[in-house]
Write a protein that binds this DNA or RNA. Structure first.
Lengths: 205, 205
DNA sequence: TTGACTATTGCACCAAAGTACAATTTTTCG
DNA sequence: CGAAAAATTGTACTTTGGTGCAATAGTCAA
């Protein structure tokens, strides 16, 4: 993994060095705009600094990079701000090296890094909303009146499984899977498994 | 890290064994209540099972442990439910070993594990901003250095197009589309067009 | 210029996906 | 119980997806 640490001075903290020994360190004023940027840019936000004065410029210069903010004074509000600005994570400047590596792992795989307290608040909100408008029984019959079995097959297909894998998972013959799929295609209007996947995952329509 | 896998049978899936070779496997009916429990308990929720019938008992018996749910049929709603019940994570039963180890790392350090699609919903506006930024950046760095042409093909595949349709759209032979796809599969690690679609659309994790 | 990389295409071939036609078993419900 | 619907499976077939091998041609940088 290719890392770059952006700060207003080049002196690194020990925990950064331990977490990412191979990272390059650059001044904010000397960010490379062209070429292939690093996989992950770690941008330090020092105490008292406003993220709005630092992040936009950085993100504009390197739109292809994933930016994680290292905040001297982290908080849930700040995290929300930097995510809204386009960063993919926000954590404490003085986090342990192991934590930083963990962040790198998650972010490197396309994830977002959010602190636990904020996440729990968000989860709490969503749980309340979902509890009200998600009758549990719905999931069984949605998508144009699929039967329970057909819905099982549809979900597995949507997850990328092959017919053989689905057959093994459900302990039925591969031919039966195909029969279900034919029925599913008919009911949903999908042309093939890929378009079904898009429908199930809500990417279509 | 001390692991315990809880299921209704003791036969482990291959990916679990690879991810946690030293884990102990126990039946749900034989959970050790006293003494020092494992650092992380992985509780499998098989297809059709209700988390409400499994989790509360497990959490009551071992209040000190961190429980991660391995769901045969994962989903955002289920994730919210199990987190609300007291679990610290929820992921796919058939997740790759590397993913499971990542989950163990996050959970072991006090984090919560949430799938990307749910997290993005939770973060809401911030995620929407990100969703628009991602495709641009991914063409250059993410998705393992695809060429411009390959990226065009990948996007069309992700949209549900057939090889013939892609060929017509790009005014090239269908054979050429296949050639690009072979290269794309190699670079991205996708097994077929459906899994590529999931990767491009960010449904994977 | 030469080497590395990308784009393009053909031919042959195998594997997976999907359809047509037909049959049996299980479940559900009045 | 008996009818209807859903689930299951088989054989055979067509189509699409994907790979291996090989060749031609353009671009870009050392």
């Amino acid at each position: 993994m290719n890392h770059e640490i952006v700060d207003i001075e080049t002196k690194m903290l020990d925990n950064w060095r331990k977490a990412m020994p191979s990272a390059s360190i650059v001044l904010r004023s000397a960010i490379s705009s062209g070429g292939h940027g690093p996989a992950i840019r770690w941008c330090r936000l020092r105490a008292g600094e406003k993220q709005a004065e630092v992040l936009p410029g950085l993100l504009a210069l390197a739109p292809e990079g994933r930016v994680v903010v290292l905040a001297d004074e982290p908080g849930d509000a700040l995290t929300l701000e930097v995510l809204a600005a386009g960063a993919v994570g926000c954590c404490n400047t003085h986090a342990a090296p192991e934590v930083l590596q963990q962040v790198a792992l998650v972010v490197g795989n396309g994830g977002l890094w959010v602190g636990q307290s904020l996440l729990q608040q968000l989860v709490g909100n969503a749980a309340r909303v979902l509890a009200q408008r998600q009758p549990v029984g719905e999931s069984a019959t949605m998508l144009n009146g699929l039967s329970e079995r057909e819905w099982q097959v549809a979900k597995l297909v949507a997850g990328g499984a092959s017919n053989k894998e689905i057959a093994d998972r459900l302990s039925i013959a591969e031919r039966t899977v195909k029969a279900h799929l034919t029925a599913i295609f008919e009911k949903t209007g999908a042309r093939d498994r890929l378009q079904l996947s898009l429908k199930v995952n809500g990417m279509n329509r």
